[in-house]
Amino acid sequence: MLKEAYRLVIEYLKSNGAIVTESANKAAVQLSEQLDRKFMNRPFYWHYRDALNQSGDPLQIMLVDSPDTSNHKGFTQLNYDHPIFQSMLASAQEENRFYTAYEKAENQRDLFPWIHLQLTTGIIPPGPASIRIDSRISLTTGLILMNSHEKIPDLHLFETRPNGSVLHSNRIPYETALNILNTRFEKYCEQLLEENSEQHAAVLQKNKPDPSISIHHISAGLIYLCSP
């Protein structure tokens, strides 16, 4: 898990203009001015530079993916626990939770819009395993696929629109589609709680509050697939 967080932060910094030099378990990062201003908590420095109309020197940081006691001169060392690393991680997630992607097929030029929604559900009070739900709704036909009931086909999506492709516009408005998906999702949540009824019975016996479903780690996208 920490590896995933480490990779995400490095990719995020790269995509925001940082120069990253990676080695086995650490990465030296020359921050861009924008990243320095955002994360490094140096408002007085940047205010002073701005007032003098001078460009500043963004800091260099050393990201380490495992506990490391070695001293990197001239670098601010950040490991997973560091508050700056945590704020970078939070921003990386926050800024990249929505996306647009496209399916590629050799003989298919028409692409139809879908809304793709992924989220994690957990039960409060804690105990049962958390579940990652993958669902999507066609904005052309209203067809809903949700992996809670059946395995839905994996998607192979790309960031760039295929050359020569024709994007169809949506027939169902985005708001309506999201509401339909939401209703279906709530039904699923009820089922989920019923499936865990034994545990909840025990919970209720102990005078604990009514169980509820928590939703987090939401990721949503507008995707264009070959099928309507």
């Binding site: 995400l8 997630q93 990249n96 992924q118 994690t120 105990g127 579940i131």
Partner: peptide, 23 residues
């Protein structure tokens, strides 16, 4: 504009944060 590549990384992180019962 969006960055689907980064979103994939975010999703990998979220998948790695799933917990089994009593974990």
């Amino acid at each position: 504009p969006s960055n689907y590549h980064l979103n994939r990384k975010v999703q990998q992180l979220h998948k790695s944060m799933l917990v089994n019962g009593r974990e």
